[in-house]
């Protein structure tokens, strides 16, 4: 519209066409061309992006499945043995054994233990942000939590290594490595994730519900645990599951504090290992095509399957929240 106006203006006011005007006119022509095409180009760009993402996901899954199954197809390892046995020693050249249960156990232990400590603190913080002091929560707490999310995991690992492990070792926890520091470090890492999602969920509870509860004579605490938490429960669970998914996939920080010993730990302060820590520890040292390398891919396949399961749980939970 403005372009048309401009051209009319220049034509009526200045019969002698200047260079500047000619240039301007040409630019308009180009603009018109651009605009006619922009619809199609935008569409193409969007479709290209969407298809690229789908292709990447599908091919990544197929590749990992193929790589992960090689151990069972070509190296003659029984998948049941792989999942349920404790004898992880794929580096032994004479009698390599492939029982990955200690890592599977370690991953699940870290996931649930860290969720166990992070959940109450996170939900409490989220309740503070949405119910106790919304203004202070949004002004001060939310930025702090965003910073916590942004801190690289290696920094969390370093803090665990230099502060938590000596502390545990000093207080009678052996050498300090194990599930306990792992749980603290990972719990700290997933706390901001759970908090921010839970706070969003709690803040989206309609004011009318709270009013109804207060008007019936409920105290603030009664309103929180009888109305707000039940109404937000599916979203709160989603937040926890997302946190657990993050904990399950965390490699670097855990590797720095867990000790990386592939045994089932006898206590919280005995060194252990998780799927991710063993993969990062050995991936660079194995030759591709070797059984050891295939075994690491199989560990990766378990991680992939677990992340798919986490996504399924989240989808199930969020579908349920819509029905409510």
């Amino acid at each position: 519209m403005t372009l048309n106006k401009g051209s009319l203006f220049s034509m009526s006011d200045e019969p002698a066409v200047s260079t500047q005007d000619r240039l301007r006119k040409r630019r308009q022509n180009i603009n018109v061309l651009f605009r006619r095409d922009s619809e199609l180009r935008g569409k193409l760009a969007i479709y290209f992006g969407a298809i690229l993402i789908i292709l990447a996901t599908v091919s990544l899954t197929l590749f990992l499945v193929w790589q992960g199954l090689r151990l069972f197809l070509f190296d003659g390892v029984n998948p049941l043995h792989f999942i349920f046995s404790n004898d992880w020693n794929p580096g032994d050249s004479a009698h390599p054994t492939y029982g990955a249960f200690p890592m599977i156990f370690g991953s699940f232990a870290i996931t649930f233990l860290s969720a166990l400590i992070a959940t109450p603190i996170s939900i409490g913080t989220a309740l503070f942000m949405s119910e106790i002091s919304r203004k202070w929560g949004n002004k001060a707490l939310r930025p702090v939590i965003e910073i916590l999310v942004g801190i690289p995991s290696v920094v969390y690992g370093l803090i665990g290594l230099t502060l938590i492990i000596p502390f545990i070792a000093h207080h009678g926890g052996g050498i300090g490595y194990g599930l306990l520091p792992g749980m603290i470090v990972v719990g700290l890492m997933i706390m901001p994730t759970i908090t921010s999602i839970a706070a969003d969920a709690l803040q989206s509870i309609p004011q009318e519900l709270k009013s109804a509860s207060y008007a019936l004579g409920a105290t603030r605490w009664q309103t929180i645990y009888k109305v707000i938490i039940p109404a937000a429960l599916p979203s709160l669970l989603t937040a926890v599951v997302l946190g657990m998914a993050r904990a399950f996939g965390e490699a670097l920080a855990v590797q720095m504090v867990i000790g990386n010993v592939t045994d089932i730990p006898h206590s919280m302060v005995n060194p252990a290992a998780t799927l991710t820590t063993i993969i990062t520890l050995h991936m660079g040292n194995t030759t591709s095509g070797s059984a050891f390398n295939h075994a690491l891919w199989s560990l990766g396949l378990i991680l992939l399957i677990m992340s798919y399961i986490f996504i399924l749980i989240i989808r199930y939970l969020s579908r349920r929240s819509k029905v409510l």
């Binding site: 309609p206 009318e208 519900l209 009013s211 109804a212 509860s213 008007a215 039940p230 109404a231 409510l324």
Partner: peptide
């Protein structure tokens, strides 16, 4: 209230 506000229960 003005708008019916039953609990999601």
């Amino acid at each position: 209230f003005q708008k019916a506000n039953p609990f999601p229960k």
